[in-house]
Design a protein around this nucleic acid. Structure first.
Length: 590
DNA sequence: GCCGTTTTCGGCCCGACTGTTTTCAGTCG
């Protein structure tokens, strides 16, 4: 397995931990340099190894001469003397034990070294044993309470079947909605907002952040901790509280007065790197930023809303989805932020599966064409496309396929007749065709001629090498009847990593052949991935957002696709299904 | 260890909460 960005980021974080264990004071800034380099690499849209091959390592943000040298050695020899030397000083169990809530590098190191657990295989079991004997409470700086908290932390970690698993954006938004409703029942609550990665609409989120304006903070914090899903209270203070819900997910509450609420919104919407970049910018201009306001010449300037906050820093208001320190601060200063695509800009949905049995080997939808069209009309769409999976290759001749397609078209026409006739909506007869292992397509040209448009997607042979995968996608992009590449990385969040393609080649071909790349809004896919959307937009690639719905409610997933587009800096003009019916049809037929 | 509309040297984001303390260290976001 070749070393990838995530692994490099993990390694650098481990090195940072080594430094803080060994002598945090001495290495204070070195530690944050390693952490920032790790973040930068983890969120890089390109593999760092590739960048190294091209000799551009020192152009990556957060990587300078020192890290370039170590990474160069790592890539050439598979290991770096410098990293290995540091790692050898800190037992592996330290990194494991740090997964426990409230246990950081110092505590983990101290427990393991003082109790001589460095050679133990199951560190959690060994620490549990020691804690039950009261050995941890005896250590300097620990007590009975912290011993109990560590035991609780290990227990809750082991209750979680998959440790550290992030939740889907859709799951997080739904859970947060429950909390918001509950908090709003309190009369003293003036306003509730969902912040953090949920507000930035990241495709997966690790926790839920909620903020409240209230006249009685302690009452609201009490109420928050008593919500029926809360299984554990982690922290509870005057201004904030943290709980675990369903034994799985962390929820943080922040309380603030109305006067400083704008600063709080900025602070807890983040991301961390956006905040750091904001503060560095403020510092360069002799100001200081916190969740209470902006300190200028010894006086704190307060802000009721975010617009005022950013304006004071001479910036445009930055949409939450862009707050990732990906150039948004520079753009906001120059007043050149993009006008991001909105859900209301979407005129049609082209990726919809019906329940018409077309004898496919993949999953069928569960709603009929009639009820789906009805729902689409209610959503205000001007056009939709039915894109069922193509019939299975092994069980059908191409003549069978054409026959099935004809029957399906009759069914679609009949079911949508009244809607189309009344002029409410137009319907495209499309298909989601498989890109086979050799790059050919699962139906022949004659069948494709029968359709209004083709989405081509990979549904098999996911483990091919990068070059072969790229060849498959590029050959589909070169087929005259294929207009859209569906869910281009094939990832399934929490289940399957996406395949890596040579994106430069794919995007260049898409532009050259006037094809579109799909942003799939199915919550588990959200694919094309946001940072690749940004790359694509930068190269002028046309995009289509599709819900990939398998029933009429699935049409609502369009919003998640739009969020991904927004995170990728996409404007209305980048998304083809923001065009009118006539323009879209013209493109489809071109 | 990184980085430059004050700087190739001398800075480096800010604050809450907890536990074990007797003024603070560790952890977290």
């Amino acid at each position: 397995m070749e070393i990838n960005n995530l692994k490099i980021a993990e390694l650098l974080r481990k090195i940072a931990i080594c430094y803080s264990v060994l002598d945090e004071k001495k290495h204070f800034f070195r530690i944050s340099a390693y952490e920032r380099a790790a973040d930068s690499i983890e969120y890089s849209s390109k593999e760092i190894r590739q960048i190294w091959k091209e000799g551009e390592l020192d152009k990556v943000a957060g990587i300078g001469r020192g890290l370039s040298k170590y990474l160069d050695e790592l890539f050439r020899k598979g290991r770096s003397m410098h990293f290995d030397k540091l790692l050898s000083k800190v037992p592996e169990g330290v990194f494991e034990l740090m997964k426990v809530e409230g246990v950081g590098p110092k505590s983990a190191y101290k427990i393991i070294m003082e109790l001589k657990l460095e050679k133990k295989k199951d560190i959690f079991e060994s620490v549990e044993k020691a804690a039950n004997k009261g050995e941890i409470a005896k250590l300097d700086g620990f007590g009975e309470k912290s011993e109990r908290e560590i035991l609780k932390g290990i227990e809750s970690l082991e209750n979680r079947k998959e440790k550290g698993k992030r939740m889907l954006l859709s799951t997080g938004l739904n859970l947060a909605e429950g909390f918001v409703g509950f908090l709003k029942e309190d009369n003293s609550v003036k306003s509730v907002d969902v912040l953090g990665s949920l507000r930035r609409k990241m495709s997966t989120v690790g926790d839920i952040d909620i903020s409240v304006i209230t006249s009685s903070a302690s009452e609201v914090i009490e109420r928050f901790c008593k919500y029926n899903k809360v299984t554990r209270v982690l922290d509870k203070g005057d201004k904030k509280a943290s709980v675990v819900i369903d034994g799985l997910y962390r929820v943080d509450l922040m309380v603030q007065d109305e006067d400083s609420y704008g600063s709080l919104l900025v602070h807890f919407t983040g991301s961390k790197n956006h905040n750091i970049a904001l503060r560095e910018y403020a510092r360069r201009n002799r100001m200081s930023v916190s969740e209470y306001g902006i300190k200028n010449k010894g006086k704190i300037e307060k802000f009721k809303n975010e617009k005022g906050f950013y304006k004071y820093l001479k910036m445009e208001w930055i949409p939450p989805e862009l707050r990732e320190d990906g150039g948004e601060i520079e753009a906001a200063l120059e007043k050149k932020l993009p006008e991001l695509v909105k859900l209301l800009d979407i005129k049609g949905d082209l990726h919809i599966h019906s329940n018409f049995d077309i004898e496919t080997s993949h999953d069928l939808g569960t709603s009929g064409v009639g009820e789906i069209v009805d729902e689409a009309v209610k959503l205000g769409y001007k056009y939709i496309g039915f894109s069922d999976h193509s019939p299975s290759v092994s069980n059908h001749t191409q003549r069978d396929v054409l026959e099935l397609l004809k029957r399906r078209k009759e069914y679609i026409d009949k079911e949508s007749y009244s809607f189309v006739k009344s002029g409410k909506i137009r319907v495209f007869n499309m298909l989601e065709v498989d890109i086979m292992a050799d790059g050919s397509l699962s139906i022949n040209d004659k069948c494709m001629d029968f359709l209004d448009g083709v989405i081509a997607s990979i549904h098999s042979s996911f483990r091919q090498k990068r070059a072969q995968m790229t060849k498959r996608v590029v050959s589909a992009l070169s087929h005259p009847r294929v207009k859209i590449i569906g869910h281009p990385t094939g990832r399934l969040l929490g289940e399957r990593e996406g395949y890596d393609l040579n994106w430069d080649e794919v995007f260049d071909r898409a532009v050259k052949n006037d094809k579109a790349i799909e942003i799939n809004g199915y919550p588990m896919r959200l694919d094309l991935v946001d940072y690749l959307v940004k790359e694509a937009v930068g190269k002028g690639v046309k995009l289509v957002i599709g819900s990939d719905s398998h029933d009429k409610w699935g049409l609502f997933n369009m919003r998640y696709g739009v969020y991904v587009g927004r995170r990728g800096w996409a404007e209305k003009a980048d998304i083809l299904n923001c065009m009118s019916y006539n323009k879209f049809k013209l493109w489809l037929n071109s």
